[in-house]
Write a protein that binds this DNA or RNA. Structure first.
Lengths: 348, 348
DNA sequence: CTGTTAGCGCCTTCAA
DNA sequence: TTGAAGGCGCTAACAG
């Protein structure tokens, strides 16, 4: 195997010292333009690329960002092949931003429920020494993890977390998104709008419900508590909640579900009862994973900007590592509402 | 930031030398069981995890496997949100296998068409110094890349490549898969089975067509060359090919498409012409990305075992790095045929 | 502005 | 069976 080209070769080629090359590579100050040019020419000629491993040894940066996902949920999503694309979207936002600054992103799966969360995270960090971490739900609000990172002094971003606290909180305005979704239905003429909640384990669940409530309040419309259905993000819970809602004496004419799977469940239950979507029952979902684009009819959905959030997270972490000051402690990324065929005015 | 625990701390804790700890970590020979035990206790107590960066500096292993994907195609898949899950499946197979041996997997996007492929790959390697590479199509058969890796002496695996050559070739039996898909249609009673090819840029395209041909040959059935439609893996090409096939004087009663997108296109075109799937036209697709499970009717599809292939690739690379001998130069992973609602006997 | 020195944490080689 | 010395490629701290 051909020996790799190192900073030494570049130094020799350019006729300068090791350190000068290092300065040029890291855009350090105090190098004459003429020397910079000579070094850069040598770098290009030799095709030199610094070794990340060595950089992390000498200095204190690894140029690595680590994303922590929930083990069970991620594997479940992969195995079931239900078309969720969280990881893809994260990679798209995060990897591309990392590449812009010579960083790399690496994924790790961590078991939230394990008694050893802390040890697991610590092990991953010890092995790779990332410059920053990106936490996804439910890790984002796990004090065991955030506490550890604070103790280690490692910068981190919490995706989809609106709670203030340590690290950067990156989120969309979940409450407003729910509100906008409900307003969309109200504008269509619906007055009884059911809501299927998410699992209590996730902070967003309560926030989304709050948006549903506020949409009614803002317009001075009454809200029947019976229209709140109990879900936990699974398809089955969506089926149960929908069945309960449709069994009401005065059933809803529209349902907002806290995620796509439960919205699909609502669609299935509606179909089973001979209800036509959207005319007998409008459905709006949350997240907009690819699968809802292929349902019949395609689903109106709140678009969760995962790629943008991850990009923002990577951006902040990279800048934090470069000691940029005055960074915001939280970022709110705009959400979208994709209006498709599952929402329409109610039958009059 | 609390200083990280290093091999030195462990050595001190266990009352042995640095080197002995290193031997225990790496399961080296010549250490007394009693000492091993003492060291292991110290490791556990201190929560020591070796730094990958340091390991790669001193020794020669980085415990990193690098997967190279085509930049444009991957970003296109992520952006379009069409529900393909190549990357997820690769991560599932690769990451989990890596984790079993303390390895990590990292993704890189490489532009195949760029004049600088070689430089791009070389840069990624120089930065991360992976112990092995996993190439995905179309990189798998790119001599610029494989040639470079051979020169560098880096082990690599070529996913979905059946061509013998350098590196490990990991594939499913593409020809047999196509043949089995066609036989499924023949068994249903179809006699005019159209085929939509993939892009010539991918070696599998020709191989899949060969399976279609062989299925007929094996049963002594004639094959009308007009039944071969020209595709390039895009939805649009699938539409064109289907339109051409259906315009034949004697149109096919079934179509096998070389990937899911083209199969969906066939379904769309059929619907637009008032043809009912599967009764007027049966459709079978290749790959089985999640989206085809949600089409109406759900698509019968050849299941491409991406996770298994990536797992096999990671497994071979890890073993190769550990100098295990007698490794196979190629691995054929079993494929599947998911029979769903898009295939049925033709109208008699 | 530029060069020199001293590690970073680990593994390889050699000596005990 | 164990330990000590040297170096991997780079950067921080200090000299010049």
């Amino acid at each position: 195997m051909r020996r790799a080209v190192t900073i030494k070769h570049v130094a020799a080629e350019a006729g300068v010292s090791l350190q000068t090359v290092s300065r040029v590579i890291n855009k350090g100050p105090n190098v004459r333009p003429a020397v910079i040019e000579r070094v850069e020419a040598a770098v290009a000629k030799l095709g030199y690329v610094p070794s990340l491993a060595a950089r992390r040894m000498g200095g204190n940066r690894s140029f690595l960002l680590m994303a922590l996902n929930d083990r069970d949920r991620t594997i479940e999503a992969w195995t079931s092949g239900q078309g969720a694309d969280w990881v893809d979207q994260m990679l798209m936002g995060g990897m591309l931003r990392c590449a812009e600054s010579g960083y790399h992103m690496i994924f790790e799966l961590i078991d939230t429920h394990s008694a050893h969360v802390e040890r697991e995270v610590q092990a991953a960090i010890s092995a790779l020494r990332p410059d920053g971490l990106i936490l996804t739900p439910p890790h984002s609000d796990n004090p065991q993890i955030t506490g550890l990172l604070v103790r280690l002094g490692l910068p981190f971003a919490r995706l989809c977390s609106e709670t203030p606290g340590d690290g950067f909180a990156i989120s969309m305005n979940e409450a407003l998104a729910a509100q906008v979704a409900v307003e969309h239905l109200l504008d269509l003429g619906h007055r009884r709008i059911g809501f299927i909640t998410g699992s209590d384990e996730y902070a967003v669940s309560a926030v989304r419900r709050e948006g549903w409530r506020r949409a009614h309040e803002d317009r001075g419309l009454p809200l029947d508590p019976a229209l709140e259905g109990d879900g936990d993000f699974t398809f089955e819970s969506g089926e149960r909640a929908t069945a309960t809602l449709l069994a009401l004496a005065e059933p809803p004419t529209a349902i907002l579900a806290s995620n796509d799977q439960m919205a699909l469940a609502a669609q299935t239950v509606a179909a089973a009862r001979g209800l036509q979507v959207p005319h007998d029952l409008s459905i709006v979902s949350f997240d907009d994973t690819p699968v809802v684009r292929f349902s019949r009819p395609p689903m109106t959905a709140v678009v969760q900007p995962i790629a943008e959030m991850t990009r923002a997270a990577a951006d902040l972490l990279i800048r934090a590592t470069a000691n940029v000051d005055h960074l915001p402690t939280s970022v709110v990324v705009p959400f979208g509402l994709a209006v498709r065929g599952s929402s329409a005015p109610p039958r009059s």
